[in-house]
């Protein structure tokens, strides 16, 4: 990545920022991708994998390191559903709401999950145990309704099977 001289003035913004450890870590992640073209997405994935979310504080750091405007970085982070602005619950449950899963009862499953957990899609339970989200297609369309519990895809779900899986997660927590 070629840096233009003007980039230096943006760096002033982040020096001595409130969270130096996160800043240093983000710089290290950027350095690891220095040779990659268009590396912002891989870097954001690594930030989220490490911290669980993409903090607002990383925006000026990334902007300075990658010679982008803060608006560009903010624009990318907010465009993609995957990047969270705050930490998720201990377990993230994504219920597929795409057509194939709808044909075998996905909407009923969503209603059941919302009622059982007492939250709506996109929310986290007050005790921070579960975040419930929608997803459009997990590529498990012949074995629906499907969901993703953390990174694990589960198929042939029914309300009772979902309850059992959630209970198992709660026991492991």
């Amino acid at each position: 990545m070629v840096r233009i001289a003007g980039a230096a003035r943006w760096e002033v913004v982040v020096v001595g920022g409130p969270n130096t450890s996160m800043t240093d870590r983000v710089r290290a992640l950027v350095a690891a991708h220095r040779g990659d073209r268009g590396a912002l997405l891989p870097i954001l994935h690594r930030i989220q994998a490490e911290f669980g979310y993409v903090d607002q504080e990383v925006v000026p750091v990334l902007a300075a390191e990658l010679n982008l405007s803060r608006a560009d970085v903010h624009g990318v982070i907010t465009f993609y559903t995957d990047f969270r602005s705050e930490p998720a619950g201990r377990v993230v449950v994504k219920l597929c709401r795409a057509e194939a899963c709808q044909s075998v009862g996905a909407e009923q499953l969503v209603a059941h999950a919302e009622q059982a957990l007492g939250i709506k899609l996109g929310q986290t339970t007050p005790d921070g145990s579960v975040t419930l989200e929608q997803v459009f297609c997990l590529g498990n369309c012949a074995l629906g309704p499907a969901a993703q519990i953390d990174e694990r895809v589960v198929g042939r779900l029914s309300p009772s099977r979902l309850d059992a899986l959630l209970a198992a997660e709660a026991r492991m927590a």
Binding site: L41, L44, Y80, T81
Partner: peptide, 25 residues
Amino acid sequence: VRVGAGAYICGEETAMLESLEGKRG
């Protein structure tokens, strides 16, 4: 290998190219 980030539109070829370049899709 590059990994998307939850945007259906990135299956459109030009949006995918933008995303590969590290931009909004």
